[in-house]
Amino acid sequence: MHSLALNEIIGYVIICFGIMFDFFGVLGLVRLPDVYNRLQAATKCVTFGSAGILIGVLVYSGFTPTGFKAILCTVFILLTSPVSAHAIAKAAHNSGIKMAQETVVDHYLDDQNEKPKEDK
């Protein structure tokens, strides 16, 4: 039977942790009440989970072309995921999607309602 090298074992363990965090992110997408809370789960867990999977790939394959691609993808995911979450949240809010019933405060809406009055 093929026995695993140390770096392969560590790589598999990290990939499993990444998949676990991704699973929590997906569970959050299903369970949380509105689009903003779902985005929270999506950005956090999926960022770390996907980055974890990529780091696992890096450990597994070493400094080969695959490994370097994994590093670059990690950096790009960490840079772009918050930006896209911000864009989706802002677009959702501006197009008037209501927040969940549990919401306690929405200063953003308050300030936007004030703005047209100031213009007049």
């Binding site: 369970r31 903003y36 789960a41 956090k44 405060v105």
Partner: peptide, 22 residues
């Protein structure tokens, strides 16, 4: 953040109290 979200998601009552603050 990851453990925080994992905790909220697994918790049966979903302890969320969302809002937008300045």
């Amino acid at each position: 953040a990851n453990f925080n979200v994992a905790y909220i998601v697994i918790h049966p009552k979903l302890p969320v109290k969302p809002g937008i603050v300045r």
